[in-house]
Design a protein around this nucleic acid. Structure first.
Length: 155
DNA sequence: GCCAACGTTGGC
DNA sequence: GCCAACGTTGGC
């Protein structure tokens, strides 16, 4: 199975890479994806061993902050079933869930965060969907070249 | 099936 | 805090 590469967004106020670093086994379930396209990527294409850039959105500055690995493939996002959860979705049923999550484990946090503006200036990263206008997806496929370029900058 | 209204995302 | 760009909802 060929390794795929992804970029996932999180608002650090909600869940930051420091939070992940402090989590048990540096592992978390990636809950709360409520967009069909992002869900399809997670549910249908994310496989164990895939590599993931962790990105901080809606903060100053927005930046790539570390790398993770997929350690569990898609299973139902149980937060959609819990009425008190901010991600509750009454349309998602336990016997036919709408929403899915994967588990990711931190590989390491970057020594140097790579800001969005730095990525915009980088020739090798120009085609990333992250940089395209109006992009709002929280799970974005990237290429191996893009992944390795960001890792090189952030190491 | 169209599309206006509304809600959310996320850079700035 | 603003607002452009989207996605979703629901009346018709």
């Amino acid at each position: 199975m060929k390794t795929k590469y992804w970029l996932i967004k999180s608002e650090p106020e909600v869940f930051s890479i420091e939070d992940l670093s402090k989590s048990k086994n540096k592992t978390t379930y990636w809950d709360g994806v409520r967009n069909y396209q992002a869900r399809n990527y997670m549910r249908d294409e994310m496989k164990i061993g895939d590599k993931v850039i962790f990105y901080h959105s809606n903060t100053e500055p927005p930046a790539a902050v570390g790398i993770c690995e997929v350690i569990k493939e898609a299973y139902p996002d149980f937060t959609a079933f819990e009425p008190n959860d901010p991600h509750f979705d009454p349309k998602s049923k336990k016997n036919s869930p709408t929403w899915f999550m994967v588990d990711i484990k931190l590989i390491y946090k970057f020594e140097r965060f790579i800001s969005l503006s730095e990525m915009k200036k980088n020739k090798k990263l120009q085609k990333m969907k992250l940089l395209q206008r109006g992009n709002r997806l929280s799970v974005i496929p990237i290429t191996k070249v893009e992944f390795e370029e960001i890792v090189k900058l952030g190491r």
